[in-house]
Simulated assay, not measured.
Amino acid sequence: MGKILTFLILACALVAGGVMYYLQVYYYYEEVQPDGVDDVMLTPLVTGEPEAIAYEDFRAIDAESSPIRYRACFTTPQSPAALADVYQPAKDAVPLVAPGWFSCFDAAEIGAALEAGRARAFLGAENIHYGIDRIVAVHEDGRGWAWQQINHCGEIVFDGAPAPPECPPPPD
């Protein structure tokens, strides 16, 4: 009887582990359908209002289960240096890991390119969801990536503290 119970417990654990893996890596993600016009936006230094830049080969995934699951890949004819003259740089840009099946987005490669100066990160849109910014990075070879990450206000409010005066009021 003990061997049967042990086998059942192990079988249940394996099934539960497989289901959790599938849910985290595949189930919640959906492919984003590009509109071909404003899928890639950056925030200009002058106006502060996001505007579209030239791009091609856009692919993206997102999930309703979390505002920071968005990942996108694209190419652009614009160089990071030219973009830096016009658009706001992103502070503390850290690419978040994407599921392995979304192979165009390699967070380690993007992070290394940002650290080495081969790519630059820009603010795509501030507070795309409360406390979440969209970050766009462009490599010198024309590849680009976008992801969403928690901003300063989000870190404070999501930890349960009241919003600082420089932050917009959190939603109810």
Score class of each variant (00 low, 15 high):
S66Y: 00
S66V: 00
S66D: 08
P67D: 09
P67H: 07
P67F: 00
P67A: 09
P67Y: 04
I68Q: 01
I68F: 07
I68D: 03
R69Q: 10
R69N: 08
R69A: 06
R69G: 00
Y70D: 03
Y70F: 15
Y70V: 09
Y70M: 09
R71D: 08
R71A: 04
R71G: 01
R71E: 02
R71M: 00
R71V: 01
R71F: 06
A72N: 02
A72D: 04
A72F: 05
A72Y: 01
A72K: 02
C73T: 07
C73S: 06
C73A: 10
F74Y: 03
F74L: 08
F74A: 06
F74Q: 02
F74M: 04
F74G: 03
T75V: 13
T75P: 11
T75L: 12
T75G: 09
T75Q: 11
T75C: 09
T76K: 02
T76S: 11
T76P: 02
T76C: 04
P77M: 03
P77E: 08
Q78L: 12
Q78P: 04
Q78M: 12
S79E: 08
S79M: 13
S79Q: 11
P80T: 06
P80A: 05
P80M: 06
A81F: 09
A81S: 14
A82W: 09
A82S: 14
A82C: 07
A82I: 04
A82H: 12
L83W: 08
L83D: 00
L83N: 03
L83P: 04
A84E: 11
A84H: 02
A84Y: 09
A84F: 01
A84R: 10
D85Q: 15
D85L: 15
D85V: 06
D85Y: 13
V86A: 10
V86N: 08
V86F: 07
Y87I: 02
Y87D: 02
Q88H: 14
Q88Y: 12
Q88P: 13
Q88C: 14
P89R: 15
P89C: 12
P89Q: 14
P89M: 14
P89Y: 13
P89A: 14
P89V: 10
P89N: 14
A90K: 06
A90G: 09
A90T: 09
A90F: 03
K91Y: 11
K91I: 10
K91C: 02
K91N: 09
K91T: 10
D92V: 00
D92H: 11
D92P: 03
D92E: 10
A93H: 03
A93I: 00
A93S: 01
V94K: 12
V94I: 13
V94M: 11
V94T: 15
V94F: 11
P95E: 06
P95M: 05
P95H: 04
P95G: 07
P95V: 00
P95Q: 04
L96A: 13
L96K: 10
L96M: 14
L96R: 08
L96V: 12
V97E: 15
V97Q: 15
V97C: 13
V97M: 14
V97G: 13
V97K: 15
V97F: 13
A98Q: 00
A98E: 01
A98P: 03
A98R: 00
A98D: 01
A98V: 03
A98G: 05
P99I: 05
P99D: 01
P99T: 02
P99K: 01
G100V: 07
G100S: 13
G100L: 08
G100I: 05
G100M: 07
G100N: 12
G100P: 08
